[in-house]
């Protein structure tokens, strides 16, 4: 499952970035790399961005990008 499928409040560990994602470098920059724990804080309505907590930082991801990050639930 990907970040896009997470429920609000859930925690997951990033497993891998799916191939074909143009944002791989940007994901790496912002700290979304395999092994990192993420928590879904909220979803914006109308297919809007998802707000994640990574460490002590808050990161907003567009739905398309969120669908390219595979996570393992804890």
């Amino acid at each position: 499952m990907t970040i896009k499928d997470m429920q609000v409040g859930q925690r997951g560990k990033v497993a891998r970035i799916l191939k074909g994602s143009t944002a791989e470098r940007r994901l790496f920059e912002i700290g979304i790399v395999p092994g990192v724990m993420v928590k879904l804080l909220s979803r914006h309505p109308f297919q809007g961005p998802l707000l994640l907590e990574i460490g002590n930082a808050r990161i907003a991801l567009g739905r398309k990008i969120a669908a390219s990050v595979e996570v393992e639930m804890e």
């Binding site: 143009t22 944002a23 940007r26 994901l27 912002i30 961005p49 707000l51 930082a57 808050r58 990161i59 907003a60 991801l61 567009g62 398309k64 990008i65």
Partner: peptide, 10 residues
């Protein structure tokens, strides 16, 4: 640019 990633600073 089709890449929406934003950090929200405190």
């Amino acid at each position: 640019e089709d890449c929406f990633i934003y950090e929200l600073p405190p």
